[in-house]
Design a protein around this nucleic acid. Structure first.
Lengths: 137, 137
DNA sequence: GTATCTGCAAAAGATTTGCAGCAAG
DNA sequence: CTTGCTGCAAATCTTTTGCAGATAC
């Protein structure tokens, strides 16, 4: 399965890339290189630079997406056509997933107005969760 | 003017902070610490760490906002209640400013659904501008 | 005077890179 | 075999920090 993805993109089908892809598939959410490193370690140990290089290659080939969040770290995940955004509590870091992405309509309007071919967006909400609002009183 | 802002927040009214604020006001868009450093240099030279420390303090006091973009750098700007987002060409880096922020309504809905007090969001669009689409053909 | 600010140089954290050896096709 | 992949260590880039001296109030 991971094999086909790699072959299709003229990439060598190495064990390490397979394991990276299988971890991304298994967890199915955006992960940092460090998290991927931890999760792959028990399966097949590899150096962190291999992970960075693999992720870079895979994101060039549009197999994974890379997105930099407000913590300054890069998060990688398998390219998905139905994507989601997050609402993050700035106090306790609790996260709520926003299922419906509200931007598709807006992107169409932007394409019409600007002539850009829009390829993506990044969107994240910040706030304080009900719990932390309580505690701060 | 800058003086009042600082006084109001119990911050010492130093020449360097004044200059940082005046540059942020003058350019009135999000800038990196490095850009601020370059712009303040002719006016009053200071070390980069002073700039980082001042920006950190000012953002704690909600005088400036900090936002990390997809280039991995932190951008600072004076807190504004009417804010804007950007559409960035991933080939030539040309930028289009999106005047109307389409998220206010959505934020109200999220507040109702989650009980979060929403304090902000980050949103950026990526795409390929008409020029670069031409060239790639 | 004293709490706060600043400069400098060093440290930190995430990511990238040069090079020599290794493995997939 | 030969092109592309990997490990290691060193380099890079942005940002943070410890400490000693300087400045605002």
């Amino acid at each position: 399965m991971e094999e086909n993805l790699l072959k299709a993109m003229d990439l060598k089908n190495t064990k390490k890339r397979q394991v990276i892809l299988s971890v991304l598939k298994q967890y199915n959410h955006a992960m940092t290189a460090e998290e991927i490193y931890e999760k792959t370690k028990p399966l097949l140990s590899m150096s962190v630079s291999t992970i960075y290089r693999a992720l870079h290659t895979l994101s060039d080939k549009n197999i994974v997406t890379k997105s930099i969040r407000q913590d300054g770290k890069a998060y990688y995940q398998l390219l998905q056509h139905t994507h989601k955004h997050r609402l993050v509590c700035t106090v306790c870091q609790q996260i709520i997933i926003i299922d419906h992405c509200p931007l598709e309509e807006l992107e169409q309007r932007l394409t019409a107005q600007t002539g850009y071919e829009i390829t993506g967006h990044s969107l994240e909400f910040f706030g304080i969760c009900p719990n932390c609002i309580q505690k701060e009183k």
